[in-house]
Design a binder for these strands. Structure first.
Lengths: 191, 191
DNA sequence: GTCTATACAAAGATAGAC
DNA sequence: GTCTATCTTTGTATAGAC
């Protein structure tokens, strides 16, 4: 896509302010003031606050590569533990690259509760994400890793809940050593 | 405490509306309309919207007995697994008793991010809750339960993240079998 | 203790000039 | 494509009668 300079300035300013203060506490006035543009200018690109938020969500998530992180094609019996532990490392990596990411993600989930259009995007992401985890553990089972929980669906949901718990804490700014907790969680999964 | 009928009507209406629609989307106008009282009447009891929210939080949490759930005094080597599994049962129990509980709790955590006074209450709860989990696992270790994670602090944080992950999903209305996931999680903790 | 009426600020959104 | 000016609604909160 070919975005104009002003369009991107609005997207990035909205992203930053929503991550910092939340969707409801971020007004159109705040955004245009911070971006150094006018209200009329913003409404030229986005027909409503909701549309702007959806565009920001899409812009942010398209840059995040889930598939690569949970890709099981290169995982063998010799390297699987390292590969799994790498998932935990993404917490530090994302944090270093963009301190607002987890906060914005929390805000996105909160708004999904209250807006059907936004909930639709969350459902899409969930429907992409869940099978990736399931495939990953199915692959592990097939290459001979002994998993304590035999039911792949239960196991995947458990992993999903834990990963999301960690992400939410990151978003809340609570200082937990996510990498350490993830590694400990992983080791418990395997006999 | 001896609360007046109107006071309790306001508290309960605010609780319900905030759980359903969130703090920001719940206006004083909504509350007084739903409660069937006047705006002047509400401001007679609460000096601001923030004060009302804090009173609702305090009212709700005082009725919830954390200590009893994590009490380790009756736990022995023979009954520990059943006692631990009981913690998972609270999800269904609370749900049956009050369908708004987890939604309100999510809203409380969200607002704690944006309001220092509300964050204070969350910190208090965390500081009460964390040592209870730590004591529980210390007790288990002492009575001879073999825990895979030897570091009690890491173990407790892991449990905390998972429990909270489950609660948040409950609040989001996502249908996961929390009891099953909790049981599977528990079994992984023990050798 | 409860009400009505009102003040005041801020929100989202639009019209129309340039 | 960007601006200023303006509309309309809604929000929190207060004053003062009963």
């Amino acid at each position: 896509m070919n975005y104009s300079k002003t369009y991107l300035k609005i997207i990035n300013t909205a992203y930053k302010l929503i991550a910092e203060n939340g969707y409801d506490k971020t007004s159109i006035n705040n955004i245009v003031k911070e971006a150094g543009i006018s209200k009329g200018g913003l409404y030229h690109y986005f027909k409503s606050k909701e549309e702007l938020f959806i565009k920001v969500v899409e812009y942010i998530f398209q840059s995040f590569d889930f598939i690569n992180i949970f890709n099981s094609s290169t995982i063998t019996i010799d390297n699987y533990m390292d590969k799994l532990k790498n998932i935990g490392k993404m917490f530090s990596l994302i944090d270093a690259q963009d301190e607002n990411y987890f906060k914005f993600q929390n805000e996105f989930m909160i708004q999904a509760l209250r807006d059907e259009n936004i909930k639709g995007i969350l459902t899409e992401i969930y429907n992409e994400f869940m099978p990736m985890i399931e495939n990953l553990f199915l692959h592990l089972k097939n290459i001979g890793v002994s998993l304590r929980e035999k039911n792949i669906k239960t196991l995947s949901e458990k992993v999903f809940v834990f990963l999301d718990g960690l992400m939410i804490y990151k978003g809340f700014g609570i200082s937990l050593d996510c990498e350490k907790l993830w590694n400990s969680f992983l080791e418990d999964l395997i006999i």
